[in-house]
Design a protein around this nucleic acid. Structure first.
Lengths: 212, 212, 212, 212
DNA sequence: TATGAATGAGCATTCATTCAT
DNA sequence: GATGAATGAATGCTCATTCAT
């Protein structure tokens, strides 16, 4: 009755979320050293001081951003139900999921690139991220085994190599879309380009995996 | 007495080269915003002031770095003699050249990543780089045509898609080697890993291109 | 159920005392500008906000600290019963009392030093402290008179000068013990040093006061 | 002839000296933590940046201040020619020199007090200061020996104790002049007070040292 | 009484760049 | 060509204090 719903002040969780969302944008756009604390505060429309109140300092905020964005990706990957599909379909499903995810989450790519620039210094610090050691590779390994058993997939395919190659195919074009558009004279992420590129790669994957 | 022999200072071209070499390291390691002018000067063992004398300012130096590193890559690519090889061999040759080049030139990858972080702002400015619009793709297109004509390569392969995929395979593992080593639990750039990964991809490429 | 026995919180006077004790430590260790409100709160194990509730602000808390510590010293000095002793013994008794008090109360010295750094700005504000204008000097004056009358003490000794000199002898070594230990190469507050230094000064005082 | 003496810009040594002089004032008045970098720059009428150019950072500037002020004191003490005077006169000469020096150099006292507040952390760092370990005590020791030999001074006086007591007498009234003026109701550093206090202490010292 | 959330002013320090010689 | 000196505009972070409950 006396709820002051008109001016929703004092909502700590919402404040925290706004800082985090603003920080994801800023760190993705400018990198961990290029990001500015006051810019994050402005984006989040909060007092700069609150950033320290909730996250300690810029470094810890960056780590929180990394864990949030990477965690989301992992949670999404976990949602895949590869075991319900035929082996080759499952590989295609995984590939399309990964490629789409990258296409829809430029911030994930930018943050990962930033991590690699700094030799994954922050990611290494995060026990949260280190624990998520790619359960998807395990799933892919099972799929390959299923395929081998049924004679649909050739033997001797290393699941890590396969996953890395699938990942590379989607990551590279998203990560390098700006320089590629200059050098190739074509926007590799434009809908048409993406579609043909995706088909080309899907075919290549399945051609190669198929037992002959 | 005042012969310039005694104190072999004053070698403008050498000074310029030292600044450039130092700047390549610094910009690659820290990105264009993370790089420090005084750090470059220290690495080059020159007075900070000289950097402005030779290159105007930090931005122009960055551009010079970009053109130098990218130019080297292009010049190396031009050295390839694909037309002397059988079509499929030519594709494999190109792939291995690109993969090896990336592996041996981390600074190229770091600088390109930095460019993409900033939407290729600097690369777009460089008429020098824009003019080099991938003559290698043209070469690859000819190779594919040769292959089609001889019946060795299937029809309908887009040379840009193919080049991008080849590039992706080598670029991604080099660019993301630090985060991959955490997530995959394996150093993807260790000699053994690289070799099997390279074989895996070569096979995939040729399997898929081969006419059936 | 709601008996206040179960959770013995809410003890205003105790909370106040804890804040004060913590503030004495903090102000003594770091000075009035170096002291941190949040550090005091942490030491007192209370919410920072409580400090403002009980003492208004940092300045007023500092004043309370000053009055507490200086008041204690005055109350202790009042406990001296100089009139029961022979005049020279009374002087010696006073000297030892003051020297011991300083030795045992570093926080008094640090707070007084801080006051002098700021030209006694806060002490001047305290009517409580100003009223205590050294009744001990009066006592010393009476002792000197007794000594003169009995022929034990020479005439013409100013009680203020005498008190200041006594005070100086004990204050200086305590206040400057750290720099003295560097410059003299000897810890002037180590038990042995203190004892000989104390004897030296006692002898000096009595030698000089004694009528000849 | 073409000396631009009208606008003496670019005088590094003078700039350095101005920063140092301003820093002495500021650190003396507000302590090492209370001192403000921008206040020092304003006092010295220089760009704040120059302070870092010449001294590195606030801490190093503080150390330079300490060494400058303490070094001056030591150099002045070295100027004393105690060996040309009769032993008791030499002691009196030393005492008056020290008392006058303290009276004329409040910044020395404030800086030493600040050091003791921080347990002589900075002074301990300075090899320059540590090396100056009180050569004056050595001189005093020789004077005492001369006095003993000639029968003018009693035996058994420790030169360190004597020097510390002399120092205490002059230091304390200068260091505590503000609080003393409140508590004693008398400005202990006013010319008249100083004179009688000085006489009182001189008499005390000589009375006690004199052989009987 | 007690506490978590929020704020504005301040602070030491860094950075790219220019000035003067 | 080369160098030391000088500068203004950030930048991440701290601090005492107040608001809302």
């Amino acid at each position: 009755m006396t709820t002051p719903e008109t001016k929703i002040k004092r909502d700590p969780e919402r404040t925290r979320q706004r800082i985090l969302a603003a920080a994801i944008e800023e760190f993705a756009e400018r990198g961990s050293s290029g990001a500015r604390v006051d810019s994050i505060a402005r984006r989040a429309d909060i007092n700069e001081r609150m950033l320290y109140y909730y996250f300690g300092n810029k470094d810890q905020l960056y780590l929180a951003v990394l864990e949030e964005v990477y965690g989301e990706f992992n949670r999404a990957e976990h949602g895949l139900k590869l075991d319900l599909l035929a082996p080759l379909d499952a590989v295609a499903e995984l590939a399309h999921f990964v490629w789409d995810y990258y296409a829809e989450h430029p911030e994930l790519i930018q943050l990962i690139n930033n991590e690699n620039l700094h030799e994954a210094k922050s990611m290494r610090q995060s026990t949260e991220i280190r624990q998520q050691v790619s359960p998807i590779v395990e799933l892919l390994a099972q799929t390959l085994k299923r395929g081998e058993a049924s004679g649909e997939i050739r033997a001797g395919v290393d699941p890590v190599d396969l996953y890395v190659t699938i990942s590379a195919m989607g990551y590279y074009v998203m990560s390098n879309r700006h320089t590629l558009s200059i050098v190739m004279g074509r926007d590799v992420m434009a809908p048409d380009s993406r579609k043909t590129y995706s088909s080309f790669n899907t075919q290549m994957l399945l051609d190669s995996l198929r037992a002959r």
